[in-house]
């Protein structure tokens, strides 16, 4: 299993505070739930901070004051999509999904992400193999014997997923202000991430690529909790509500829709390349 390749570290624009550093840096993938038609609505629990004291303080504050996490697509994630992610768009297409671990994705998280993306494409009719690590240039050489499907058909699409942190904010000042106001003013933590998707054909020819960027903001405090709870209860439309696992659902839906569209585009692009090949072979 290859997974040693390190991701290029995203620009960290702020010096992270002691208890928000690792926690927020990894929040985005914890927000990814199962594909739409298998969604249990239970996101992976957010990883706790590494410092026990910080974890204690953060947990106490979070439990005592309540928090609201919202998701905002920055670019790519909100692009219009034509395909229906629940339709058999990729019938009998043999596919390999490569999830690359790195500073922004641990091996455990990589496995989770790969499983979910695999489920998504299996429901669209594809025969999917998941691999932890980057795709190799040669066909199939990234697969071990166990991972190689029983079918002998060549891999048609090789999708590689990597993630980067774009920034994580320094929330210590907002925590200080929040504590001084008995959490009426919220403490705000935020991070931005990018998911880089590259799809190649079996021989390594690039078919499609996209960088999907989003932002997650968590506001802690009684003020923000009460105001948003009241808004959700009394005047926000159902599709505009923010409490519960809404942010996880929204992010998951955007990610799966974009991955589905990209895979479909790649499939058509591959057909074009196949049509080109015989023509070029002619004298």
């Amino acid at each position: 299993m290859r997974g040693g390749e390190r991701l290029a570290r995203g620009r960290s624009t702020l010096r992270p505070g002691p208890f928000v550093d690792q926690n927020l840096r990894r929040r985005w993938k914890s927000q990814v739930t199962l594909p739409p038609h298998t969604n249990t609505g239970a996101p992976i629990p957010t990883r706790l901070p590494r410092s026990p004291a910080a974890a204690l303080v953060l947990s106490g504050l979070a439990l005592g004051s309540g928090c609201v996490t919202v998701y905002q697509p920055l670019s790519g994630l909100q692009q219009p999509v034509v395909v229906d992610p629940t339709a058999p768009n990729l019938s009998d297409v043999r596919m390999a999904v490569y999830c690359v671990p790195g500073p922004a994705l641990s091996r455990w998280e990589t496995n989770k992400l790969c499983q979910r993306v695999s489920t998504l494409f299996e429901h669209q009719g594809a025969l999917v193999t998941t691999v932890e690590g980057p795709a190799a240039d040669g066909e199939d050489d990234a697969l071990t014997d166990d991972e190689r499907p029983v079918m002998e058909a060549p891999i048609a699409l090789r999708m590689e997923l990597r993630s980067r942190d774009l920034y994580t904010n320094n929330a210590s000042l907002s925590w200080a202000i929040s504590l001084m106001t008995a959490t009426v003013l919220p403490a705000v933590e935020e991070s931005a991430f990018a998911v880089d998707v590259v799809i190649r054909d079996g021989s390594g020819f690039l078919l499609a690529s996209e960088s999907l960027q989003g932002r997650l903001i968590t506001r802690y405090g009684v003020g923000t909790w009460a105001a948003n709870r009241a808004a959700d209860t009394y005047w926000r439309r159902e599709d505009q509500r923010l409490f519960g696992d809404i942010s996880s659902h929204d992010l998951s839906e955007d990610l799966y829709r974009q991955l589905s569209q990209l895979a479909y585009n790649a499939r058509v692009q591959r057909q074009v390349l196949e049509a080109r090949a015989p023509a070029e072979a002619r004298p």
Partner: peptide, 21 residues
């Protein structure tokens, strides 16, 4: 620009954003 008390999800999705220096 994120959804919240003053910004609806609908409006927030209308924005194209980039992280810059």
């Amino acid at each position: 620009p994120a959804p919240g008390l003053l910004m609806s999800k609908e409006r927030s999705r209308q924005l194209e954003c980039a992280v810059v220096t």
